[in-house]
């Protein structure tokens, strides 16, 4: 093949090899991009004809924000349920992306004026929490799957208590014999607090396996002091430690998901109030639009 055609051919080949899934993923991105370009063009034309282009972009942004808020309405309206929630969610994500682009057309990142700055701050708070929430929701399932079976967040404390109870009973059982007493001693000194107390806030923000690995290593180290029965008990204890860690991990990840999702709406009311004030002031104090 002619060398000049190779890059083009590769592009065509890559495009042709796209499956429907990839195309479905590309479609909304392209749509958002197209919409943004249209708005940009409208803004330029508005500015070129001596209109106040901020009204064009402002009302576009306001319309997009209203559409974004409809997701919350859809979630709360039980009947009638229009469309699948997943589609609503996806639309919400892409509209959010578009809203950031339109904001860039409407105003600077750093604004001046108290009202406008507060409005910009609330907008960016919502946008950033939205992006983080999207990212967390995108990456969390894989993490959760790796951490064991599905479990509801409300059930995690009960399961944790159950695991703690099992570990305690196992420790009691190993304490009565000399060849297994080391396990009980080790449990009492190093492991019992792990089952009875909550993980610290660092773990809850950013869970890691460090403590689990230390505990498991510590349990393995006492194998030489245990009989065969004791080692079996030790392995059971290790499984309980693993289970507890899984539960804590699940709790942390699920809390993370909920927290960011919740934070996404903390300043929604503020945003609405400031937006309304901004629109009223813009119309009141602008002579030409």
């Amino acid at each position: 093949m002619d060398s000049r055609l190779q890059p083009q051919a590769r592009s065509l080949h890559a495009f042709a090899s796209l499956n429907s899934r990839d195309l479905r993923r590309l479609f909304p991105v392209v749509t958002v991009l197209l919409a943004w370009l249209i708005l940009k063009s409208m803004r330029s034309q508005s500015a070129a004809s001596l209109q106040n282009e901020a009204f064009v972009t402002g009302y576009s942004l306001a319309s997009i924000c209203v559409l974004l808020m409809l997701l919350g309405v859809r979630k709360r309206v039980l009947s009638p349920q229009i469309g699948r929630l997943a589609i609503w969610q996806q639309t919400h994500h892409y509209l959010g992306l578009l809203s950031v682009g339109v904001y860039a057309l409407h105003a600077n990142v750093i604004t001046s004026g108290w009202l406008e700055s507060a409005l910009a701050l609330s907008f960016w708070s919502i946008a950033i929490t939205g992006f983080v929430s999207w990212y967390v929701n995108h990456t969390a399932p894989k993490l959760l799957r790796a951490a064991g079976s599905q479990i509801l967040r409300q059930d995690i404390p009960v399961r944790s208590r159950l695991v703690a109870k099992q570990a305690h009973e196992l420790a009691l059982a190993s304490a009565g014999k000399n060849d297994t007493a080391a396990l009980a001693d080790h449990y009492r000194v190093h492991v019992s607090s792990y089952f009875t107390t909550r993980r610290n806030w660092i773990y809850r923000i950013s869970p890691s396996g460090g403590k689990r690995r230390r505990l498991l290593a510590g349990l393995e180290n006492i194998d030489r002091y245990l009989s065969a029965e004791g080692r079996a008990q030790r392995r059971e204890m290790s499984l309980l430690v693993q289970s507890r860690d899984d539960l804590d991990f699940q709790s942390a990840i699920q809390n993370r998901i909920r927290l960011w999702a919740s934070a996404h709406s903390w300043v929604l009311g503020t945003f609405l109030v400031l937006t309304i004030a901004h629109v009223i002031l813009a119309h009141q104090f602008t002579s030409s639009w």
């Binding site: 009202l115 507060a118 709406s265 903390w266 300043v267 929604l268 009311g269 503020t270 109030v273």
Partner: peptide, 12 residues
Amino acid sequence: QVCATLIALIGV
């Protein structure tokens, strides 16, 4: 949410 909204309303 409520506190933030109230603060915004009072400020405006």
